[in-house]
Amino acid sequence: MTKQQKLIDEFAEKARAVSTKVRVVDAMAEALEYAVTLCRDKEACQVLASGCEHPLSEPAEDLCGLKQWQKLIAAPAMDQKVLDALIPMCREAGIGLIQKGLGGYAGGIDVGLTGADLGISNTGSIVLNCPDEDLRLATMISEVHIAVLRAEDIYADSHDIEAALLALFTDAPDYTAFITGPSRTADIERVLSLGVHGPLEMHVLILGQSEKG
């Protein structure tokens, strides 16, 4: 087994242990297909407006009106090449695609699609450099966060990426996130619940070696 395969396997094992859904994909097109299909097939109302189905106070109910009742994918900070492929796929599936002004959608977005900068296999974490506020928000207010992680960007341990982090932090201002699984809480009776403030689901698509470079 190659060293990289070992890292991929460990990443998948650790990430799945914290409820991340992991899949290895061969090409970016496959990742886009995955995101669009997931968004198209997901139960719109239930997950989409998480919390809206429950009895709420008046101001909180108003917020549900903020949301456009059309499915949305947010894909900020994506390459033009990727967007060129994604736009027709979304149009065909009847899904709105947004890139900017995510603060206006704080009521919720169906899917946030991002490209991870690095991965850490022994904790199943992705590292996302997101000083861009829209990119940051896509990983916070989306019901489902899908991150594409290139296999060659996976490292074994957080100490292995110290130099990379130093470069990011030195280039201030900077906002960098380690994300490991969906948002979670155990604050009521120590019972684990997913999706308290951030995404209810976290998906990592590991982009294999065939698209290396």
């Binding site: 914290v18 904790t123 974490s125 982090l165 990011l168 932090f169 201030a172 201002p173 900077d174 906002y175 960098t176 996130a177 380690f178 994300i179 490991t180 699984g181 969906p182 948002s183 979670r184 951030g198």
Partner: peptide, 9 residues
């Protein structure tokens, strides 16, 4: 590790 680790500079 916790779900989120936020680094702000």
């Amino acid at each position: 590790i916790t779900s989120y680790l936020t680094w702000i500079t």
